[in-house]
Computed example of a mutant assay.
Amino acid sequence: MNTELRELIAELRTDLEADQPATLAWAQINKGAPADKIPADLPQPVRELLETADGIRAGAFDLPAVARLDDIQYYIEQMPGFTGVADEPSEWLVFGTLHDEPLLIRRDTGAVWYLPEETTDEWFMRDLFLDVAPDLDSFLAYYVFGAGYGEIGFDDDKWWGFLDKHDLTTPGDEDEETGG
């Protein structure tokens, strides 16, 4: 994980902690997990995220702690057949959810994938599965902690307001929309 993203996560964690308990209903960024408590078979970007923040709740996003990561892997078996995910479960990891729907990372490439909401269909009935970011750092910087949250999360919830208060809702030169 790049240094700027680590520093941003630490800064946002500090600001959220300063306003507790009010912020706990819509956001929480836990301190990082010790490296020896993170399974070695996780993709390196996910390991680095967990070392930085062992669980993140940010508005519509829930990126669980190490202790809960195994609990969300059932999504792999429920993925629509056309995605091929259930046929190659060892190639994928569900690293979190967006609106209670799976966010996956490909173990070989590090690309982040999801089922975008095109209709009101349940996620497992959708027919579009997109790589939304080429890597986890890009995904986190743009969609969880940046302007992209308004595109795939909400643009009117408390997390969006928190991001706006921190001047993170307007794409800047360093922000890069990462596809999808």
Rank of each mutant, 00 (worst) to 15 (best):
D135Q: 06
E174G: 10
E117S: 09
V46L: 13
P134F: 05
A27D: 03
I29A: 04
A141C: 09
P34H: 15
I72G: 12
L42Y: 15
I29D: 02
G153N: 00
R6K: 13
E51R: 15
L103E: 01
T83H: 14
G161R: 11
P21G: 03
L12R: 01
D62C: 10
L98M: 10
R6G: 00
T169I: 14
G153R: 02
T83E: 13
Q73S: 01
R57P: 00
E101Q: 10
P34K: 15
W26V: 09
G180F: 15
A33T: 13
I38V: 12
V46H: 05
D100R: 15
Q28L: 07
R106G: 07
G179W: 11
E4L: 12
A33V: 11
L63K: 02
G179K: 00
G96A: 07
Q73A: 03
Y75I: 08
E151S: 13
I56Q: 09
M79I: 07
D70C: 05
G172N: 03
L128P: 01
M79G: 02
A67N: 04
S138Y: 02
T178E: 08
G172V: 09
T52L: 00
L50N: 04
L63E: 01
K158M: 14
E117Q: 13
N30S: 15
K165D: 15
E118N: 10
M1C: 07
L140S: 05
T169V: 14
T170N: 01
D121R: 11
I72Q: 10
R6Q: 07
D41R: 15
D62M: 15
S138Q: 09
V144I: 02
S138K: 12
G84T: 05
G180R: 13
E91K: 14
G32C: 07
L136N: 03
L24Q: 12
I105R: 10
D164S: 13
P43L: 14
D36P: 00
T14L: 04
L16P: 03
E11H: 15
P102V: 08
I29F: 10
A86G: 09
E176K: 11
A22V: 11
H166G: 00
E177H: 14
Q28F: 04
G150C: 09
Q20E: 11
D127P: 03
E177W: 14
H166F: 04
F129V: 00
P102E: 11
G84S: 06
D175N: 03
P116W: 11
G153I: 06
D121A: 11
P171D: 06
Y142E: 03
G180T: 05
F95Q: 07
I76E: 05
Y114E: 05
T52R: 02
I72K: 11
R6I: 01
G81T: 12
D15G: 03
L42Q: 08
E7F: 04
A53G: 02
F139R: 08
A141V: 08
I105A: 08
P89Y: 09
W159R: 00
V46S: 00
P171T: 07
E151C: 02
P34T: 12
E77L: 12
L8N: 13
T97Y: 05
L163W: 02
F139S: 07
A33I: 09
I38G: 04
F162P: 00
E177P: 12
A25Q: 09
R47S: 06
L8I: 07
L140W: 10
V46F: 09
L130C: 15
F124M: 08
Q78P: 01
A65T: 06
